[in-house]
Design a protein around this nucleic acid. Structure first.
Lengths: 232, 232
DNA sequence: CCAAAAGTGTTACTTCTACACCCATGG
DNA sequence: CCATGGGTGTAGAAGTAACACTTTTGG
C-alpha cells in the first residue's frame, strides 16, 4: 500500500477478528438482549470473560474470519453480520494486536434449538448486555460500542427482524424493538410505520393464541435500500 | 485474543493504514471536492495513482498512523479524522495486506497556504472526486465508499464546517454543503436550520464584499452531541 | 437607483405522536 | 360477556420545503 516494500522484519503485529453476537433470550417480562462470551484459558487475562474471536488466517477474508469465529462459538449462521470497528491501540494487549471487530444478530429460535440439541459449547456463556462482567482487554468498551451501534441502527433500519424467526407477528417484532431500545412504543404507530416501509411482507398465516389471531409477517430481504453503503 | 497462542510462523499478514483526505479547492462556479493521490513508484501497480498510506508501525496506534500518513502527504493536521472501514479481502493485493482506512477533512485555507509556500510534494496530486482515474488495488471502491460516507454524514452532522477556515459566513458554509451534496439548498431554510442547531456561534465580525456585509460564524466544537459513538 | 446578497416572515405540506375507538378470540 | 391483544381512525404538534418580502451594501 505504501512506497516502502514491506514493514521491517522485527515487526510483530498480529491481526485478530472478534465478534459481538446479539440474540434475544426469553426472560420473564421482556426478553433480554444477550451476547455470548468465552472464558479465556490462556495467559493474557486467563480466567476472564472475553468476546469470541481468533487469529485471522492468511487464506480467509475478514468477513469469512468473522463468520468462522461466530460458527466456532455458536455453531450457527448469523442473520446479520457487519464490520463494527478496528481497534489497534498499542497498549490494548501485552503483545501488539490489531482486532477487526464484527457485530452480528442471531435468530432466537435457532439459538434455543442449537443449545437444547447439542448442549452448550464448553467455556461459552450468554450474558445480559446490561450486566456484563469485567472483560479481558478492552472488550467492555468494544461491547459498549457495539450495543450503541445496534441501538442506533435499529432506529433507522429494519434489521431488528434478524433477531426473530422467519415468521412473526407485529407485536413480537415490536417487543424486539422495545427490548433493544429500552422503551415502549405505541402499537398503532409501530404498525403503520412498518406496514408502510416495504420491509415486511404479510403472509396468509395467523398466530393463534389466547386472543384475536395476529397476522404473521416475513422479513423482506430485497427492500434493503435503507442507509447502508455500497459495500455490503 | 483467541485461545490459540499465536498465528503460525508462516503467516505473513501485514497491516497498512490509508486515508481518504477531502478538501474543497477553488473552481469556477462551485468549489470542487477533491482528494490527494500518490503515484506509486514500486512494483504492485507501479505508476498508478493510489490513496496515501503506509505500513502500521509497531509503536503507534491506528489513529496516530493515520495522522502520520496524512501529514506525510499534505504536511497538515486535519480538522476531522475518523476511521472508515478495514479492507482485508485475500486477493486485494498480491501479498496479504489488511488496510485500515481513515477519512479526513482539511480546511481549504490551510491547503492553499501550504501548497503555495512549500510547493506540492513530489508525486502528490489533487483529483476531483467525481473524476478519479483508475486507482491501484481496490482504492476506487474505497474512495467511493468514503465519499458516500461523507455525503451521508453531512446530512445529519455539522462536520462540513471542517472544510472551511475558522470563521465563515453562512453562505460560504451553504456552498460547502451544496458542493458536497451536489444540490442547491434554500438559503433561508439553511440559515434557520443551522442557527437553531447550536453548532455555530455568531461572532461580531462581518465579511464585507460587493454587497451587504454578512455575519461571520465560528464552529462550536462543544456541541458535538450529534450522532457519533462513545468512541471518538 | 439598481443589482445582488443578507436576512425575516408566512404558508402549505409532510411526518410524528398521542390516544380514542372498534374487532375478534379464548375462557 | 368480558378481558385482552389485534387493528383502524384521527386530531394536534413538530418539522420541511417553497417562496414572497424587506434590508444593506457597492457601483
Amino acid at each position: 500500500m505504501s512506497p516502502s516494500p514491506s514493514p521491517s522484519a522485527a515487526d510483530a503485529i498480529r491481526v485478530a477478528v472478534s465478534a459481538v453476537i446479539f440474540s434475544l433470550r426469553a426472560h420473564p417480562g421482556a426478553d433480554k438482549l444477550m451476547i455470548p462470551l468465552v472464558r479465556r484459558t490462556r495467559d493474557p487475562h486467563e480466567g476472564m470473560w472475553a468476546l469470541p474471536g481468533g487469529w485471522l488466517d492468511e487464506t480467509e477474508g475478514l468477513d469469512e474470519a468473522a463468520a468462522r469465529t461466530l460458527a466456532e462459538t455458536t455453531a450457527l449462521t448469523p442473520s446479520y453480520l457487519e464490520q463494527l470497528y478496528t481497534f489497534g491501540d498499542v497498549d490494548r494487549s501485552p503483545t501488539r494486536v490489531v482486532s477487526v471487530v464484527y457485530w452480528a444478530l442471531l435468530r432466537s429460535d435457532l439459538v434455543d434449538a442449537q443449545r437444547s440439541v447439542a448442549g452448550a459449547p464448553e467455556n461459552v456463556e450468554w450474558f445480559d448486555v446490561d450486566a456484563l462482567p469485567p472483560l479481558a482487554f478492552d472488550h467492555n468498551r468494544i461491547a459498549g460500542y457495539a450495543l450503541w451501534r445496534l441501538r442506533n441502527k435499529v432506529g433507522y433500519s429494519r434489521i431488528a427482524a434478524g433477531l426473530l424467526p422467519d415468521e412473526f407477528t407485529l407485536t413480537e417484532l415490536r417487543a424486539v424493538y422495545e427490548s433493544v431500545l429500552g422503551r415502549r412504543l405505541d402499537p398503532s404507530n409501530f404498525r403503520r410505520l412498518l406496514e408502510g416501509s416495504e420491509a415486511l411482507v404479510p403472509t396468509e398465516s395467523f398466530r393463534t393464541g389466547k386472543h384475536r389471531p395476529a397476522r404473521l409477517f416475513r422479513y423482506n430481504a430485497d427492500a434493503e435500500t435503507d442507509k447502508r453503503g455500497p459495500l455490503d
